[in-house]
């Protein structure tokens, strides 16, 4: 049947689209960076790793190693930036978590995070455990199963499915779809950043003439609301807001 064949073609095309476009040409640069790092030449290691990023390729290992090299050269803000990026790609890697936590201990600014409810904590832990693509796959799988169940049960009546099974499938699918949406919002649509400069002033407005609210130091993380004349309007975890000059920070 032509419809079945079309389906196979589509699935194959999808697999091709999803399977990462390998940047095999840069594997050598990665190894070169690692060699520099092992010999203590962190500056050249950073150059090698950065070259791969500039060419438009990335991986959790690349960000992790780059974070290590930045930490060794005292660039705390950038180290935290790259560890965070690594964590987004591979949220369950212990090394990334350990080094991110370790680096954050050196950040001068400690922001008190408002107490979270237990439910919110579990939800957050769920989000921290899976990457966006993983949650997307989960939702997609549940979507396929739900569609198959509807086809088999309601349309063709090939076999009988108990109602709770269908309800469970549908609700799990809705839940994971919502999660995927939220994760997309958090990781991709919400812009966040980190302070790179040793210290920079958080201003009351987008310009040097505005008064200083407080001094932020390297490694402080925030979310970006919008930008205006070279400044970002940023939110800190304790709901403080302020304007911070773009050149002192990097977007994650």
């Amino acid at each position: 049947m032509s419809r079945g064949r079309m389906m196979i073609v589509l699935v194959l095309m999808l697999m091709a689209a999803i399977s990462p476009v390998r940047g095999g040409a840069f594997d050598g640069d990665f190894e070169k960076g690692n060699t520099f790092y092992s010999t203590g030449d962190y500056a050249n290691a950073i150059t090698a790793y950065q070259g791969i990023l500039n060419a438009g390729y990335h991986s959790s290992e690349l960000y992790y190693n780059l974070g290590d090299a930045c930490f060794r050269t005292g660039q705390l803000g950038r180290a935290i930036l790259y560890y965070t990026r690594a964590k987004q790609l591979d949220p369950r890697d212990e090394d990334i978590q350990a080094n991110l936590a370790f680096a954050r201990r050196f950040a001068i600014d400690k922001i008190e995070i408002t107490e979270e409810t237990i439910l919110l904590e579990y939800v957050n832990r769920f989000f921290d455990t899976f990457s966006l693509n993983e949650i997307t796959w989960m939702a997609a799988l549940l979507y396929l199963l739900t569609a198959a169940a509807i086809l088999a049960h309601y349309i063709y009546r090939w076999f009988y499915l108990p109602k709770p099974v269908i309800v469970l499938l549908v609700s799990l699918f809705v839940l994971t779809a919502v999660f995927a949406g939220v994760k997309l919002d958090r990781d991709v649509l919400t812009r966040s950043g980190v302070v790179l400069d040793q210290q920079t002033e958080v201003k009351n407005g987008p310009g040097d003439d505005f008064t200083n609210q407080f001094t932020a130091h390297a490694g402080l993380m925030f979310t970006i609301e919008r930008e205006e004349s070279g400044y970002y309007l940023v939110d800190f975890e304790n709901r403080l807001k302020g304007w911070i000059v773009k050149s002192a920070v990097a977007e994650i």
Partner: peptide, 9 residues
């Protein structure tokens, strides 16, 4: 650092 190679994409 991680030295076991990587999948760049």
């Amino acid at each position: 650092i991680k030295t076991g190679g990587t999948h760049l994409y």
